[in-house]
Design a protein around this nucleic acid. Structure first.
Lengths: 344, 344
DNA sequence: TTGAAAGCGCTAACAG
DNA sequence: CTGTTAGCGCTTTCAA
């Protein structure tokens, strides 16, 4: 029922090895034979068996994509689909398949990755996150298995190939933007400090403040998870501070969006009373009211390049580690205004 | 360097087959031997090779997930991530991996599916769409390959297992909701009529109209793709009709969202001037201004059940085809109002 | 330019 | 309860 290389061989009066060579388009086979074999393959409806091929050739033609364990909670967030789109576009043109890993705890992820690697399910891996002290990344390094990271690795930066934005720089820029509008009381709404991206952005944020001579205020550091759990409460607490912030730097348009909604419920107007800037530049940021000033981090590119680098490494394991920085762009919209609380 | 079943066997002083049996936890092996073998596996860091196992056992422990070719354009839409989340949750608990297919044209998808099937890359397939006259689905049926569909198949409905909402019913309901608010001029904003979901919903829509004695007006049929391309133009055209609609039924919150934004630009207020209902009940629908009345179609469940059914079929190919209907719920919010253009 | 044969790592009869 | 053996379908030396 299943047509194998042997069937083709028999039908075409050649050896199985010849058929194999035709499949890989070996130059050592005459065009004539190739043609005949191909016709038989067509006629018999032959399709190569991936497992057998992988087993013999020790290559799977598939790459593994590892989501962070929090991704699924935040999966209504278009970051992951968009980065996946970039990855899959590139993988596909290189004839690689995509194997998705979706563990829901750190240990589960680790388990999945080790079994993917040791079990030779994939030829390489794209890590869609970078967290502090990540055993999965350590494992990959120690196993010397091809992998690339979307985000900056916490350690051994110069020994892994990764694709990232310049988060420190761009966060400094966007914070400066608020400062130039006259804001001094600026809050930073970020995710867990376990993620390198949060660390980098917070550093960029602090850098901007210190250069402007504004002291950093711990009370203005808001945890993103808190917002997701009970946004109303978190925002209320923030805005009820002795001197509430007039500017907000958030990590994601969706969060910005939710915050704005809560603020409006509290009769605090954006941008009149509070200015807000954000990251990711999702489609909706343009259509929301107010439209959100957001950093376009080129999510698709991040994925595309990560896949590209990975496939290059798979094909040539001796390639030197490199860092690719995807440029960002501030998209100015209507969520910011001059600070009216202070004399200009 | 790579540790195989043989290494484990040698180290544990048993035959390879015994190790194999330990892996599959065969009841015919003594607990004592199992323990010893497991210790050796642990100690040697053994991981089974998937390819070899697949080849010998003719099962891959992976399911393929096929996106519609338009999905990636619409990939900022959280539908796919959410349905994927459902699929992966179920697959994962059943120890199945997920193989993602992301062709960008119909032919590419077909090609990917045939090679997945014939090349035995996966044990079964979840189709994330149902379109009219789809050759991919036909192929799967003819090949008698395990698959399930999210959505209602165009043909041979009784011969395939699928998971869907009752789209006709729910669209009728939601349209009735507008009708009861006094709306008579109601537009339907939908995707391509190649998709069964659009057909079903349009039918539900028409049903509601005809039961209310409202004639169906072709001019009120708006193509979703048009909105995505040039929303402003499409909306302007619609609202410039002789008698513009006062009610809108859209297929997706994101679209609803964009339409509202354009309407506001035109100084048409929602819900005061135009009421709008939608589908999917995305997170943002709650926080948008106005919040959107939307049908919660339980996307996660759709994916979860589709994976569940598929895995059941894989394990038992003789299972009869069945249809699973996931209940929906109308979430009433603030995007609708009584129609003020007509005397109540 | 082609064929024969060994083997990738595992499973599954069949024996014992 | 465990070992022996024969493949799964393909690639890849080595030989011709």
């Amino acid at each position: 029922m299943i047509v194998t290389i042997k069937d083709v061989a028999k039908e075409a009066n050649v050896a199985p090895s010849t058929v194999s060579r035709v499949i890989s388009n070996s130059p050592r086979i005459s065009e004539k034979t190739k043609k005949r074999v191909r016709e038989v393959m067509e006629q018999l409806g032959y399709h190569p068996n991936f497992q057998a091929r992988s087993l013999a050739a020790k290559s799977t033609q598939a790459i593994g994509v590892i989501m962070p364990n929090s991704a699924f909670h935040a999966f209504q967030n278009p970051f992951f689909p968009e980065v996946l789109r970039g990855i899959s576009t590139n993988a596909h043109t290189n004839k690689y398949g995509i194997y998705l890993s979706t563990g829901s705890t750190e240990d589960e992820i680790f388990e999945e990755v080790t079994s993917m690697v040791q079990g030779r399910r994939v030829d390489g891996i794209v890590l869609l996150y970078s967290r502090v002290n990540d055993k999965t990344m350590k494992f990959l390094q120690e196993a010397d298995f091809p992998f690339t990271v979307v985000g900056r690795p916490d350690e051994n930066e110069e020994r892994v190939t990764y694709v990232d934005n310049d988060n420190i720089f761009i966060t400094k820029q966007i914070t400066n933007y608020l400062i130039k509008l006259g804001h001094k009381n600026i809050a930073f709404v970020g995710g867990s400090l376990d993620f390198v991206v949060t660390i980098d952005r917070l550093n960029g944020f602090k850098l901007a403040l210190s250069e402007a001579g504004i002291p950093f205020n711990d009370e203005y550091l808001v945890n993103e998870e808190l917002i997701k759990e009970n946004g109303k409460k978190a925002i209320t607490a923030l805005m009820n501070l002795q001197s509430p912030p007039t500017g907000l730097v958030t990590q994601d348009d969706l969060i910005a969006y939710e915050i704005i909604s809560h603020l409006e419920d509290m009769k605090i107007r954006v941008p009149d009373d509070v200015s807000i800037v954000s990251f990711n530049n999702l489609l909706l940021s343009e259509h929301s009211k107010p439209s959100i000033t957001s950093v376009d981090i080129a999510i698709y590119q991040l994925g595309f390049e990560a896949a590209k680098c990975l496939i290059e490494i798979i094909k040539n394991p001796d390639l030197l580690p490199r860092r690719i920085t995807i440029p960002t762009k501030i998209i100015e919209r209507k969520s910011c205004a001059n600070n009216k609380n202070i004399p200009m």
